[in-house]
Simulated scan of single mutants.
Amino acid sequence: MSGIDVETKRKLREMGVGSLADAFEAQDDLLTLGISFEERVKLVVDDAHATFTHGKVEGLIRRAGLRYPNADLRRLDLLEQRGLDRGVIAQLGTCAFIERQQNVVFQGFTGSGKSYLGSALAKQACQHRYRAHYIRMPDLEESWAAARDKPGGKEKWLRKFASFTLLVIDDSCEASHESLLC
Rank of each mutant, 00 (worst) to 15 (best):
residue 154 K to L: 09
residue 74 R to V: 09
residue 167 L to Y: 01
residue 167 L to P: 04
residue 121 L to G: 07
residue 133 H to Y: 14
residue 108 G to H: 05
residue 175 A to F: 10
residue 157 W to Y: 09
residue 24 F to R: 07
residue 98 I to G: 05
residue 142 E to A: 14
residue 8 T to M: 04
residue 106 F to T: 09
residue 123 K to T: 04
residue 26 A to R: 14
residue 157 W to Q: 03
residue 35 I to P: 00
residue 158 L to N: 05
residue 115 S to V: 03
residue 63 R to L: 13
residue 56 K to I: 11
residue 42 K to W: 05
residue 58 E to W: 01
residue 76 L to S: 07
residue 109 F to M: 15
residue 49 H to C: 12
residue 56 K to D: 09
residue 73 L to V: 00
residue 95 C to F: 06
residue 92 L to I: 10
residue 57 V to P: 00
residue 102 Q to V: 06
residue 31 L to T: 10
residue 150 K to H: 12
residue 176 S to N: 13
residue 79 L to T: 12
residue 49 H to L: 15
residue 154 K to H: 06
residue 23 A to N: 04
residue 117 L to V: 01
residue 33 L to Y: 13
residue 2 S to W: 10
residue 101 Q to G: 11
residue 70 N to E: 15
residue 39 E to V: 08
residue 113 G to D: 00
residue 41 V to G: 02
residue 10 R to D: 03
residue 110 T to W: 10
residue 22 D to E: 12
residue 152 G to F: 02
residue 119 S to W: 04
residue 105 V to K: 06
residue 139 D to Q: 14
residue 171 D to P: 02
residue 90 A to I: 03
residue 159 R to S: 08
residue 80 E to C: 08
residue 70 N to V: 11
residue 54 H to Y: 12
residue 131 R to S: 08
residue 51 T to L: 12
residue 182 C to L: 10
residue 111 G to N: 03
residue 105 V to E: 07
residue 168 V to K: 07
residue 61 I to F: 08
residue 9 K to R: 14
residue 45 V to S: 00
residue 18 G to V: 01
residue 164 F to C: 04
residue 17 V to T: 04
residue 8 T to P: 00
residue 176 S to W: 11
residue 28 D to R: 12
residue 162 A to I: 01
residue 133 H to M: 08
residue 94 T to N: 07
residue 104 V to L: 09
residue 129 R to G: 00
residue 148 R to A: 07
residue 116 Y to F: 15
residue 80 E to S: 15
residue 106 F to E: 08
residue 60 L to H: 04
residue 114 K to T: 06
residue 111 G to D: 09
residue 124 Q to A: 12
residue 113 G to R: 01
residue 43 L to T: 05
residue 74 R to S: 14
residue 82 R to T: 11
residue 181 L to W: 11
residue 61 I to T: 11
residue 124 Q to K: 10
residue 62 R to A: 15
residue 48 A to H: 02
residue 11 K to C: 02
residue 49 H to N: 13
residue 166 L to S: 03
residue 166 L to E: 03
residue 12 L to R: 00
residue 164 F to E: 02
residue 1 M to P: 06
residue 20 L to H: 02
residue 52 F to I: 13
residue 110 T to Q: 12
residue 34 G to S: 03
residue 24 F to W: 14
residue 11 K to N: 02
residue 159 R to T: 08
residue 144 W to Y: 14
residue 2 S to V: 07
residue 49 H to T: 11
residue 118 G to R: 03
residue 31 L to A: 13
residue 54 H to I: 11
residue 40 R to M: 04
residue 36 S to L: 01
residue 116 Y to I: 03
residue 122 A to I: 06
residue 38 E to T: 13
residue 52 F to C: 08
residue 62 R to K: 15
residue 178 E to W: 11
residue 171 D to N: 14
residue 51 T to M: 14
residue 106 F to I: 08
residue 126 C to I: 01
residue 118 G to V: 01
residue 94 T to K: 05
residue 90 A to F: 08
residue 99 E to Q: 12
residue 28 D to A: 10
residue 100 R to N: 08
residue 19 S to H: 10
residue 126 C to G: 01
residue 7 E to A: 07
residue 113 G to Y: 03
residue 85 D to K: 10
residue 60 L to D: 01
residue 94 T to I: 07
residue 17 V to H: 06
residue 141 E to G: 14
residue 137 M to W: 13
residue 52 F to H: 12
residue 160 K to F: 04
residue 131 R to W: 04
residue 58 E to M: 10
